[in-house]
């Protein structure tokens, strides 16, 4: 079964679509779900944890580069929340590397491609956290 990956994407940093992902990650290795947000600071801890709870293997928050947030500090807060959510997952025994974050510079498209490739590899390495007993 392919890993399920949820992307919380700040609409100011990148406006890519599902088709773009297929171009960046050829081979259809994972199922991506994209949620576009007005700012990465909108990403609540609850969003990330609920996405994992709902069956996602990995979550990635895509934010603007440091100092470039339209809401001034949304990306800094998102990073804090990612750290906190990972801690909660670790406490629950799911691991502390299920939620990633990347700061994407709109001028450098390669950063996002690399981050997406990395998270797919990591998801395949870790395998699903939710295993159904047979």
């Amino acid at each position: 079964m392919k890993p399920q990956i949820v992307l919380y994407c700040c609409t100011n940093s990148t406006t890519f679509s599902g088709e773009d992902i297929e171009k960046r990650i050829p081979g259809n290795l994972a199922d991506f779900k994209i949620s576009r947000l007005p700012c990465s600071g909108r990403t609540d801890t609850l969003y990330m944890v609920r996405a994992i709870e709902n069956g996602a293997d990995m979550v990635m928050v895509i934010a603007c580069p440091d100092g470039c947030c339209q809401f001034l500090e949304g990306n800094r807060r998102a990073r804090m929340r990612v750290r906190y959510a990972n801690r909660l997952l670790a406490e629950a025994g799911i691991g502390d590397d299920r939620i990633h974050m990347v700061n994407v510079d709109p001028a450098d498209d390669q950063i996002l491609t690399t981050a997406l490739q990395k998270i797919v590899v990591r998801a395949l390495d870790m395998g699903p956290w939710l295993t159904t007993s047979s």
């Binding site: 007005p38 700012c39 600071g41 909108r42 809401f71 500090e73 949304g74 807060r77």
Partner: peptide
Amino acid sequence: SGIIDWEE
């Protein structure tokens, strides 16, 4: 609407 909350 898109409400942004600095809840910290």
